[in-house]
Design a protein around this nucleic acid. Structure first.
Length: 489
RNA sequence: GGUCCCAUCGUCUAGCGGCCUAGGACAUCGGCCUCUCACGCCGAAAACACGGGUUCGAUUCCCGUUGGGACCA
């Protein structure tokens, strides 16, 4: 198979809730494919299910797409030459094309009631057969049809599928896939309420929007033969298909709410960086030829190929996502990271809602020295309190350390030295610490641990010279003073 | 139940008949670095579901079994 040019692909979510992580991956693969081939990426909202579709969800999806950085070239809030991009605004098109099929003798009205159909289905299911429509209304005479219509009996429109032969297609990730037509049966293309079912609406939309490649979840694979039949009946050129495997939870069932966070919004809340989430999602079912695990968008686009997409379902592994996210946190540009992390500090009350430039520059340094400890942005403030609190929490270990004479001497000498310098900078504090060794006669553990304990009340934490630099001269002296008092008691 | 899809370390995967004593990554365990924690670095343990073929030779191709998943206006 070769790529049709120019490539036009779409992501078509239903606005029935938040953007699911699985859908996000589908969107990502479409986006990568489009960008790799310099094609067009389209967002289409499939909101024909009036019962479950909501405007809020519609909005949420647009926001999530934006946050993920999956920019589309055509879409509901973007416009384009093939709109409208919400199915609810395209209902007339479905009716028009359904009627065309009726006129061509390829579809017919069906008056069967839901109860009748359900009973029929249960009977077949009980007999261990595929629940295929019997075709009861297929051979109704013209007179009978007219009579029933005149009587006001509601009817759906069904597409004729002859039971012989098979429909197959070349799937980009699965290879050849074939379905027997006898198991398909005449299916509905327009319901009695005038709504087009999924299978019909997608075909009309994809055909009219000139979609060249349909990249979607594996759950749609059994819909594909019906759609192919429709393309043929309508005289449209069918697109090529690629069915992505499912994302599973740890128990190997489809990823759902009971497995924990499943929406993009939840991951955003929890402090994952969009780049990290994208990176992880890409690796879930695709491997770059280079084998890189941490890979930039540009590099992903450059290397993306449907041929390297995995056929088998993948278990969502939060541990690996965490590792990737931690990686991005450690390597992200500090200015950008600070902006991204700011809300978490504000919520923790460490930074004001209208931060001053001093606050921001301090925060930047705080993040710089603590980013190595965390895997998500939300964990960041937990490591920052020693820089913001006015009353340290002392661990027993730290108290213990200050009880020795040598420790107290170290603190006193440090105090004297500190008073002698103008202000603390990374350089001065580094120098100061170096000189301390000669001045106190202590070194290593006996030198640094007491200082750490005195300044933070803890035995673990970031590099001392950075610590002192961020705290500043006044705060350091205050804390040393307090530590000495504590040591005496 | 029927149809369709899938099957390599716990997890994500590389592998497209000999390069495989099966490679990488996460997680796990051990060590190094270091005032400490974290980061980082080094190392260890860990898999081709099973049974038949095809072939000089199968993780790789075919069939079956088993297991898992998806779909069933």
């Amino acid at each position: 198979m070769s790529i049709i040019n120019p490539v036009r692909v779409r992501f078509a979510p239903s606005p029935t809730g938040y953007l699911h992580i699985g859908n996000a991956r589908t969107a990502l693969f479409n986006w990568l494919f489009a960008r790799h081939h310099h094609g067009t990426f389209i967002l289409r909202i499939e909101d024909t299910d009036v019962e479950r579709s909501t405007q809020e969800s519609d909005q949420l999806i647009l926001e999530d797409m934006k946050w993920l950085g999956l920019d589309y070239d055509e879409g509901p809030d973007k416009g384009g030459a093939f709109g409208p991009y919400r199915q609810s605004m395209r209902l007339h098109l479905y009716r028009e094309y359904a009627q065309k099929l009726v006129d061509a003798g390829k579809a017919y009205p069906c008056f069967c009631t839901e109860e009748e159909l359900e009973a029929e289905k249960q009977k077949l299911l009980a007999a261990g057969r595929m629940p295929v429509y019997s075709g009861k209304c297929r051979n109704l005479s013209q007179e009978e049809v007219e009579r029933r219509k005149a009587a006001g009996i509601p009817f759906a429109l069904r597409f004729k599928v002859d039971p012989w032969g098979s429909v197959g297609f070349q799937d980009w990730v699965r290879g050849e896939v074939v379905f027997e037509k006898q198991y398909i049966g005449d299916f509905v293309i327009l319901r009695s309420d005038g709504i087009a079912p999924y299978n019909f609406a997608v075909v009309i939309d994809d055909a009219l929007m000139q979609i060249t490649h349909v990249i979607r979840g594996e759950d749609h694979i059994s819909n594909t033969p019906r759609q192919l039949l429709l393309y043929e009946a309508l005289g449209f050129q069918p697109p090529q298909f690629a069915h992505l495997s499912m994302i599973l939870g740890p128990d190997h069932t489809r990823l759902s709410k009971r497995h924990g966070a499943t929406s993009v919004a939840q991951y955003r809340e929890a402090g994952y960086l969009p780049d990290a989430l994208i990176n992880y999602l890409a690796l879930l079912g695709w491997t770059p030829e280079s084998g890189q695990e941490i890979i930039s968008r540009e590099e992903m686009i450059r290397q993306f190929s449907l041929k390297r997409v995995s056929k088998s379902a993948a278990v969502f592994d939060i541990m690996k996502l965490n590792w990737i996210n931690g990686n991005y946190i450690r390597n992200e540009d500090i200015k950008k990271l600070t902006a991204l992390a700011l809300p978490y500090y504000q919520r923790a009350g460490m930074v004001s809602n209208q931060p001053t430039s001093e606050e921001l520059s301090k925060l930047e340094r705080v993040i710089q020295v603590t980013r190595g400890y965390v895997e998500t942005l939300s964990q960041l403030p937990e490591h920052a309190w020693i820089f913001y609190t006015s009353r340290l929490e002392w661990s027993e270990e730290a108290k213990e350390i200050l009880k020795t004479d040598s420790a107290r001497r170290v603190i006193k000498v440090l105090q004297e030295e500190l008073k002698g310098i103008e202000e603390i900078t990374p350089d001065t504090s580094k120098n100061l610490l170096a000189h301390l060794k000669a001045k106190t006669g202590s070194g290593g553990k006996n030198l640094y641990l007491p200082i750490r304990a005195a300044l933070t009340g803890q035995t673990h934490g970031p590099e001392l010279y950075q610590l002192m630099d961020i705290l500043g001269k006044e705060e350091c002296l205050k804390r040393l003073d307090f530590a000495l008092q504590l040591a005496k008691a």
